[in-house]
Design a protein around this nucleic acid. Sequence first.
DNA 1: AAATTAATTTAGATTAATCTAAAAATAAAA
DNA 2: TTTTATTTTTAGATTAATCTAAATTAATTT
Lengths: 219, 219
Amino acid sequence: MNSFTEENYLKAIFKLSSPKADGVSTNAIAEELQTKASSVTDMIKKLSDKKLVKYKKYKGASLTKQGKEIAVSIVRNHRLWEVFLVEKLNFKWDEVHDFAEELEHIISIELTNRLDAFLEFPKYDPHGDPIPDKNGNVYNHKDETLADLKIGAEGVVVGVKEHSKSYLNYLESLNLVLGAEVTINDIVDFDQSMSISVNGKKSVNISHQASKNLIIKKL
Amino acid sequence: MNSFTEENYLKAIFKLSSPKADGVSTNAIAEELQTKASSVTDMIKKLSDKKLVKYKKYKGASLTKQGKEIAVSIVRNHRLWEVFLVEKLNFKWDEVHDFAEELEHIISIELTNRLDAFLEFPKYDPHGDPIPDKNGNVYNHKDETLADLKIGAEGVVVGVKEHSKSYLNYLESLNLVLGAEVTINDIVDFDQSMSISVNGKKSVNISHQASKNLIIKKL
DNA sequence: AAATTAATTTAGATTAATCTAAAAATAAAA
DNA sequence: TTTTATTTTTAGATTAATCTAAATTAATTT
Ligand SMILES: [Mn+2]
Ligand SMILES: [Mn+2]
Ligand SMILES: [Mn+2]
Ligand SMILES: [Mn+2]
């Protein structure tokens, strides 16, 4: 068995991995987990001994097949529990992450699959993040954000790249929830802030900081 | 915040406490938690420092008001999650305890109360154990077991005193589930084993070992 | 009441996860 | 290609939870 700590390291390395770069740096993991580089070195050695992580001194860490399987199953768990908390217990999308951080560590394929069935096999979590299927396949959104759109373009909100309470609350106040339709009316050249219409209502303003974290599917 | 370990100690002391005796012995706690007496001494000192446990050297441990509140809220959590797992995810009554042992440590009054509401405020868990209410009140069953009944007596199964998989499976094979009606047809004087009818069906035999762990409400 | 047995506590070690500070390796700049 | 800056690793300490073995206190028997 793996400790919660080990599982959180696997999840962090999974999150920080990209198809291009070969290894995740010690500092990046430390930043993600709010810990120190020296602690990270210790842990990735340990995970390497357990054959969950590939590690070469000074060359960063990457997940083995087995390590990735565990990481994906935890992400699957996390997102399914978030769906449960929003759909069944009526929590808001900004309230569920911390609970899911704990629930995700109850590792049981049987439990996860039954939860999945109970929720009727959701494809996305309350933040638009894709839920990995039984076999560990994840189909991520194209990484197109509101900030990438041109004047006149239209799109639908399909996800967020930032999960803080304050950001999610702010989006909600603008009705920029999942499924909302957006039209770009104007872009200010100076700071790239935008005037947009949400669901055809009157124009509101949104900063670049906010627009670049909103994932959009163009219409 | 308290660690899982600390919470498990509080729960153990709660479980072992009785209105009559004043303190729970070190050895009893060690036995309950499958650990050593010396470890227990260390932990109850720590919980005493935190004012969750009253402790006098060599005199055993008991919960303070605050310690008891925490223990009861964990028990409430545990039993509600067990109901969820059986009622919503269709697990069997012998499959849910270990999951609940983990779920119970996600401490949030809000989460617990919403789960309670979602489950429509159940009074008992899948093993017949009473679920403490919002205010921490628990109404236990009278401690009358099948073994206490006389020949000719009738009763309803309302709970179990033993939660092992093998016992629960055995009961199920005899249809001795919650709500089943039992009639005592005969008692063998030698070993106190019983011949009983379940829901009016033909007589089956049950050992004293098994009958004394089945909680019954007389009709 | 003294001796024996049982229960409990203390002393000292161990393991996991963490940290700070210093050393070593790599990357970037001059 | 040296020098400097950054990143990463190592060395050594710390804290929580555990253990074994020894010492102490309490309970039970003689
Ligand atoms: Mn989340
Ligand atoms: Mn999410
Ligand atoms: Mn249980
Ligand atoms: Mn139960």
